[in-house]
Design a protein around this nucleic acid. Structure first.
Lengths: 152, 152
DNA sequence: ATCCTTGCAAAGCATTTGCAGTCAC
DNA sequence: GTGACTGCAAATGCTTTGCAAGGAT
């Protein structure tokens, strides 16, 4: 943690090299921004923020960069039905809370118990399980307070 | 289970009445088809199948009908990143297996233990949880056999 | 020098919408 | 008879693509 910027840059360089791709200012800026936020931004939000670092960047390049990062395992794409995809710079195994009112996505700081996961895998007969995704839905503190939410 | 068609029809009539909406041949055909399959079809697949019952139906009407059914709680919408949404006529609480190769969605005949769910809810501080969604990903018997899948 | 990447504009695809005619109640 | 629903076509919104110019190795 001594040189966070340098470390981030070399992580990216290494990952790109491994797949025969090139290090560019645009990809670096997108990667840096994703690492700096917990807001799970949409492609457009990434675009708007990254323009501060790289003024001429285009939305198409942001999409391409995000796809590249996901392909390298440096980010993940979260897809919900409503509107656009969101991107997450965290690569460790974790899960999400999603507000049904404002659409905000929060990190869940807990895991499904490993035994429970194995039990579920066992009931998936004839299917080779390689991963899982869990999402709790409900209402965030802000929207709950606003009273826009049914009491379930 | 003596008159499955009749029962299906009255379930739909009742649900529509409750929300001030009308019973139509198109909605009935979409509902019947969703109930008859476990294939988790896309809107387009629903459209193609339902045309056998209601030749003149339009894709827009299929979309509207599916939305109506979801709104009445008679179906649910499954959204993954790849392409189009899928619809599920089952309304009981259950989860899914999704093949990363062919995209097929299967039902998981098991639940997350209730205690485990409560434990996770408790770690979602400041967030009122109203539901959750779990999806196991991997490779179905067909695709696994075909060898198109990395060994994890 | 090679060939990957960018930015632009246009295309693509799933889904939604506006509206006149039709139908359920 | 009234208001909701259908079908058509056009529109929308997110994302991807083709291509010429520029940049990384």
């Amino acid at each position: 943690m001594n040189h966070p910027h340098v470390e981030t840059e070399s992580i990216l360089r290494r990952a790109l090299e491994q797949s025969g791709q090139r290090y560019t200012e645009q990809r670096a800026a997108v990667f840096r921004f994703l690492r700096s936020t917990e807001a799970h931004p949409t492609a457009d939000e990434v675009f708007l923020s990254v323009r501060a670092d790289v003024p001429g960047i285009s939305l198409a390049t942001v999409y391409k960069s995000l796809e590249t990062l996901v392909g390298c395992g440096l980010a993940s794409k979260l897809t919900y039905g409503d509107g656009s995809a969101r991107y997450d710079g965290r690569t460790d195994d974790h899960h999400h809370l999603r507000c049904l009112d404002c659409g905000k996505v929060l990190d869940l700081v807990d895991h499904v118990d490993a035994d429970e996961v194995h039990r579920l895998e066992a009931s998936a007969r004839g299917f080779r399980v390689t991963g899982y995704r869990l999402e709790l839905t409900g209402y965030c503190a802000n929207c709950d307070r606003a009273g826009g939410a049914p009491p379930a």
